[in-house]
């Protein structure tokens, strides 16, 4: 019984992984080959998705990063005070926000906000025959629905992470200057001294990978939905949960790679 269940789930996992990768290959094909076949990405679709994924997410991304910056500064100050090294709060906040916390938390927020919306929309289209209608109109659903969402997230998420980084460090600055009594200039100098370009690019690279995870999982779950309203709900939950797990796993793997590569 137990062995059977393990086998079944492994089989399912392998099949889903294969399908998601196949979707990724198709998406990349349409991104690069589509324009040469006279079928480029619809500019209007890309614009709508970029506004939805990017501009509309600004407030929540700022909100989360700002408070995380504050919490991070206070938490590290609590430890560093005992060593009399409170000034290093600036360095710690800067490096952990840009390398780790910023990309991961921003991506999780986007997976919850944008990924869920993508899955809900596409799966509703699936159960109301709209996907089939696209196909009978000779419009490839991957080109028409997946590619604009994929590109929009790929462009927008690194931008959001970059802005989130700044807001997060600003949160740390508020604590450092108004709570810990560090000088404003000193805090900024320390931040710049310890922060390297590599920290920022590492974070941005991670966020690009996370954006692909979010869009691919969300679109795959949407397109493979079956079974009416219940199916839409199930797919949306699955999409968010899977994205969360994969983002965390990918983060661990990438962090390990960058760590052992001694960047």
């Amino acid at each position: 019984m137990f062995v059977e269940a393990v086998g079944k789930n492994t089989h399912l996992l392998v099949r889903q992984t294969r399908d998601v990768l196949a979707l990724l290959v198709q998406t990349v094909y349409w991104v690069f080959v589509g324009p040469f076949r006279g079928k480029p990405v619809s500019r209007k679709g890309l614009f709508v998705q970029t506004v939805f994924a990017g501009v509309d997410s600004l407030v929540i991304v700022f909100f989360v990063n700002f408070f995380i910056g504050i919490v991070l500064a206070m938490q590290s100050a609590y430890q560093l005070e005992q060593l009399g090294a409170t000034i290093y709060v600036a360095a710690l906040v800067a490096v952990s926000v840009t390398r780790e916390i910023g990309p991961v938390l921003t991506s999780l927020v986007i997976a919850g906000r944008v990924g869920a919306a993508i899955t809900a929309e596409i799966s509703t289209m699936k159960v109301t025959e709209q996907i089939e209608a696209l196909e009978t109109l000779s419009l490839n659903p991957v080109r028409y629905l997946v590619v604009p969402r994929f590109l929009a997230l790929l462009m927008v998420l690194p931008c959001l992470v970059m802005m989130g980084d700044i807001i997060g460090m600003f949160g740390g600055y508020i604590v450092g200057v108004y709570n810990l009594g560090l000088g404003s200039g000193l805090y900024m100098d320390t931040t710049i001294e310890f922060l390297t370009v590599k920290d920022i690019t590492t974070g941005l690279f991670k966020s690009a990978v996370f954006s692909m995870i979010i869009s691919m999982i969300a679109c795959y779950q949407g397109l493979s939905t079956e079974g009416g309203a219940e199916g839409v709900g199930r797919s949306t939950t699955q999409s968010v949960v899977t994205s969360f797990i994969l983002i965390i796993i990918a983060d661990a793997v990438l962090t390990a790679v960058f760590y052992f590569a001694k960047t």
Binding site: T128, E129, Q130, A133
Partner: peptide, 8 residues
């Protein structure tokens, strides 16, 4: 299509 399948 049965439901019209208009893109909403």
């Amino acid at each position: 299509f049965q439901s019209g399948a208009l893109f909403d």
